[in-house]
């Protein structure tokens, strides 16, 4: 089975993030594999171990994305592809990424493409579905269980806390939700072997794409951090008065009632 994983490098939202002039500062940020993509890598490895075949991890990114690809290789993926847009593209959005990936996949024999449900940075959840649409294959988002039997694919899909059972067939694109699996730690031998595994680097030229074809369809106007949490208010006095004050504050100040 030819299994592909779409992987994105994101900054670690558990670390401190600084924003200056509507831009996230790259210097201080820690970069990681998008956590939802880790579920995709894990699932790809499990499906390969069960059904045979090969796992290829694909990312659209820059030179530094190699680190996240190597980590996926250390977890057990077989091959990695870095589509490096650093020198060619100033900006990009979900359209750009989906279009690049479409060009990459057009010539490929694909059985299964796994992606994260969303990336924790921009959280659009669009790239997977858009790619499937362009490739003309079915897709299911937010999956929490995957069973493949021949060409038949049985899926549990998370629908706001409920489960939808879906049957579809290969080839298919699936996006992975928390609960699908428990991503493994890359083992020591895995890490040491990762450097010997193939990592192919492509530029948009290699995919017969031109900068103009990839012009983003959206424009990011501003990026800002949520307002700092202010200190709470402690109400004092008789219980009766406190309750009245609380209700009035919720009504007039917080406007939640």
């Amino acid at each position: 089975m030819n299994i592909y994983v779409l992987l994105k490098k994101t900054f670690d939202t558990e670390e401190k993030i600084a924003v200056t002039n509507g831009q996230i500062e790259d210097d201080g940020a820690e970069f990681i594999i998008n956590p939802y993509d880790e579920y995709a890598v894990e699932e790809a490895i499990k499906q390969r171990d069960e059904h045979g075949g090969e796992v290829t991890v694909v990312t659209v990114g820059d030179e530094d994305s190699e680190k996240q690809l190597r980590t996926a290789l250390a977890m057990g993926a077989d091959k990695a592809v870095l589509i490096n847009t650093e020198d060619d593209l100033e900006e990009g959005d979900q359209f750009t990424t989906a279009k690049i990936l479409t060009a990459y996949f057009e010539e490929k024999e694909v059985d299964l493409i796994l992606a994260g449900n969303v990336a924790i940075d921009e959280a659009s959840g669009q790239v997977g579905p858009r790619l499937a649409e362009r490739l003309g294959i079915p897709y299911v988002t937010t999956i929490t269980s995957l069973k493949i039997d021949g060409e038949t694919v049985n899926i549990d899909k998370d629908v706001e806390g409920d489960i939808e059972k879906i049957e579809t067939s290969l080839p298919v694109l699936l996006t992975c939700q928390q609960g699908l699996n428990e991503p493994r730690y890359p083992s020591l031998p895995g890490i040491m072997k990762a450097k010997k595994k193939p990592l192919e680097e492509l530029e948009i030229d290699d995919l017969d794409l031109d900068e103009d074809d990839l012009e983003p369809k959206t424009k990011t106007v501003d990026i800002f951090l949520p307002p700092e949490k202010e200190a709470g208010k402690v109400l004092e006095g008789e219980l009766q008065d406190q309750v009245q004050e609380l209700v009035s504050l919720l009504k007039n100040e917080a406007k939640v009632l």
Binding site: E66, K67, R70, T71, A74, Y185, L188, I191, M192, A194
Partner: peptide, 15 residues
């Protein structure tokens, strides 16, 4: 090295 960074990160996560 890249491997050393990866090993450090893995052990850190595990720990």
């Amino acid at each position: 090295s890249k491997e050393q960074v990866m090993i450090k990160k893995m052990v850190q996560d595990f720990a």
